[in-house]
Design a protein around this nucleic acid. Structure first.
Lengths: 202, 202
DNA sequence: CACTAGTGCTACCGATCGGTAACATTCTCG
DNA sequence: CGAGAATGTTACCGATCGGTAGCACTAGTG
């Protein structure tokens, strides 16, 4: 049951047989998430990736470019995680939903959890930064997929339910680093209760 | 109905008859919120406050010190806003709650809204930064006051309700800058529905 | 073997960062 | 008025920022 979140959360050392570009993205993912985008310099990223600044700039035109690739990477993986969860429970929306809640539980109880990396990035970046478009599109997509899921499970008001679930989850992730972990950890129970008690209909 | 949020949101020019310290805090509040803590230099803050770096450092030992004062200021004002809302509706918990939801509506529909300034700060600061303690204490306090409010209004499970309302609100504030404004703006209706439908008891 | 593409390395650039010294100026208030 | 405190101004510090030039090195390919 190793979390899908932590699978690449650590990039220390990293003299593995990966291409420099991959190692740089790994390092950026780790450092940006742990310390914030503005707090991490490109030199530190290159060093963590067991390479140097020049190689970094051969693969990314600028730090902003790297930030966009970082966001894109996270968005892609988020999509893939949901793809996988859905694929493992085909044609049974209830089980798909339950599996997603299990995944949420994994995420929130991960001790490295520092909130949603994409939301954190959005906080740090100006509204005009190109990475913001990637982030907003991802979040929109995620919300829409929840709607589809709840519609498939025949909930009476899938839009409303998706709003609630989406906001509760987002609230939990941001709260885990500044709202007391209590409410954030109790959100899984709340979600299960919510999903069980909501009316369904044809 | 001018928002309690925007009352000091703009600090431009600012050659008003305020003490330099006040102007610096005003400027920090504005710039930190709009651009993020790490993205704003002390020189820019001093300039916006119509003063200079030396005066800034006469009132704050370091930028970190200023950040702590910034967080403290926001926390105090948050407390005071809730104080005022409660004081204006003494001895009628239902009206207090309704007034708080109205306030939430004001906050979320403010076009300058960029999420909770304290949450945003927490995202940018390391867990060991002294301002983090201020932020976490404030959020904890806020959550506890919600519990008290719902208990006073005789909801059957005030703790659970407070968790839900708290997380929905936090989720809405973070989502407004990266989750599509849709769910965030619909949260007010959700809150009103939630509060109206929840069972009360003795 | 020679050629090429990718990488490592070092030294450097101008700009800006947080923070300070020293001194001139203004303001407050007895 | 006169004294002391607060503020303004300028110039500066070392460190670090994002980003680049130039060249040595390695590895794969024909």
């Amino acid at each position: 049951m190793r979390s899908a979140v932590g699978l690449a959360a650590v990039a220390e050392g990293a003299p593995i047989d990966r291409t420099p570009r991959e190692r740089i993205l790994l390092a950026a993912r780790d450092l940006f998430y742990r310390h914030g985008i503005h707090a991490v310099g490109v030199e530190a990223i290159a060093e963590t990736a067991s390479t140097n600044k020049m190689t970094l700039y051969r693969h990314f035109r600028s730090k902003d470019d790297l930030i966009v690739a970082y966001a894109q990477q996270l968005a892609n993986e988020g999509d893939e995680v949901l793809d996988r969860i859905l694929a493992e429970n085909t044609d049974c929306p209830q089980r798909q939903i339950a599996a997603w809640v299990d995944f949420v539980e994994d995420v929130l109880t991960n001790k490295r959890e520092r909130g949603c990396a994409l939301a954190n990035a959005a906080v740090e970046l100006e509204a005009t930064h190109p990475a913001r478009a990637v982030i907003e599109a991802y979040k929109q997509r995620k919300h829409d997929r929840l709607v589809g899921l709840f519609r498939a499970a025949q909930y009476r008001d899938p839009d409303l339910l998706a709003d609630e679930v989406f906001l509760l989850f987002e609230g939990a992730r941001i709260s885990i680093q500044c709202g007391g972990k209590g409410p954030a950890l109790r959100v899984v129970g709340m979600l299960r209760g919510l999903l069980a008690s909501r009316p369904k209909a044809a």
